[in-house]
Design a protein around this nucleic acid. Structure first.
Lengths: 208, 208
DNA sequence: CCGATATACGGAACACCACTCCGCTTATCA
DNA sequence: TGATAAGCGGAGTGGTGTTCCGTATATCGG
């Protein structure tokens, strides 16, 4: 009597049906729409606006992201992934020094779009708790590889840790106000010149 | 015909009646209530909560502060005033070195309550535009006087600018996370020890 | 190929927010 | 001590994030 009937019991622990294709497509559409809306209107943009841009109902959006902060966190992770992957691509397509410089500018652009998000990070919402670790786990190896390659060719000095550089650029980018963007660009440029300052020797092979 | 009637025209440019006593009392009550509510619930606390704590209607609150950000800015200015005034009080009641250290800890406490506000400052709301200047205009002379006095008695090194110290403590206080408060306290302590490091000589009179 | 059914969709409805409006109250002053 | 302008209170407005549930549809056993 306490046993389940012989059949017609849906297996709870292992749902067998593969996820619906439209569901995956819609989640993708929401993320893409949210990325655009956050970029243009900031992270405080209404959820309805995102749903509208994705061409979906609000209910659908909330099915995929139970609340606003989950959506913000998902978009953030997605952009971290994209930026970190670009490090590999740049390393494959350019010489080490140039790949490094290109990526650091790419990273600066990434940080620049995260002004509002930095504030949200300190809001205490548990959805954001894991983001700093995610950030570090992806960017530190990405930059580490670029730095190692550029160090090996003596294009940059060898004594700069990836994490320090990530943080320094992040902090420089918090400068805001009238000429905030300009000030950031100049200061980051100065920092990157500093990277090249103590290099061993410009050409690939030159050792006494 | 186009002229005004000979009398009974209220003078527009110079309102003669002195402001009503209850109005001043209520404005004061709103500021005090807002200070408490912001401290306990953060700057995102509902306006209704502040009005309720002040024992007033919402309309009354909005009569004094046309919108939320005006109220936040007013509370901020008020706390800046209180903290800056305390510098004078401490200078009068303690020897220069101790007055300086006590005030810097007071300032650190002030900064600690401004986590959410720092985010609001970058929100683009024009009500906050003048706050950084207000901040600097009050704190720089306050700290400058304390530093000068402590430098004169050789209790601290003479080469630290007030503005740098204010900013450094502010930036150290942005460290958040698991042990954010603790980390801030340790780092600020270290910074203040650094202040004493290069002093000329401990006692007031000792010159070779 | 074709129902059966779990899964996903859509948007009306809800709770809460900042902010407005206007009839009523009250402090000020002649 | 009125007359009257200034101030007060809170219901109302418009907009937000989030929930709920009837409807539509992709998947899969037959």
């Amino acid at each position: 009597m306490t046993q389940a009937p012989p059949k017609a019991q849906p297996e709870n622990p292992l749902p067998q049906r593969r996820p619906r294709a439209d569901s995956q497509r819609n989640e993708e559409a929401v993320l893409e729409a949210a990325k655009c809306v956050f970029a243009t209107s900031g992270v405080d943009a209404p959820v309805r606006e995102i749903a509208a841009r994705a061409g979906l109902g609000i209910g659908t959006l909330y099915r995929h992201f139970p609340n606003r902060s989950d959506l913000i966190a998902a978009v953030f992770r997605r952009e971290v992934d994209a930026c970190a992957e670009e490090a590999q691509r740049l390393a494959a397509e350019h010489p080490p020094g140039e790949a490094l410089m290109r990526w650091l500018h790419r990273y600066t652009a990434f940080i620049a779009t995260k002004r509002g998000l930095a504030a949200a990070l300190h809001s205490g919402d548990p959805a954001f708790d894991a983001l700093p670790a995610y950030f570090q786990a992806h960017f530190e190896p990405a930059l580490g590889a670029l730095l190692a390659a550029a160090t090996a060719t003596h294009e940059i000095r060898p004594d700069v840790a990836p994490y320090d550089l990530l943080r320094a650029i992040g902090n420089l980018s918090t400068a805001s106000g009238a000429d905030g963007a300009d000030h950031t660009r100049r200061m980051v440029g100065l920092l990157l010149d500093g990277l090249r300052y103590g290099a061993g020797a410009p050409p690939p092979k030159a050792a006494p």
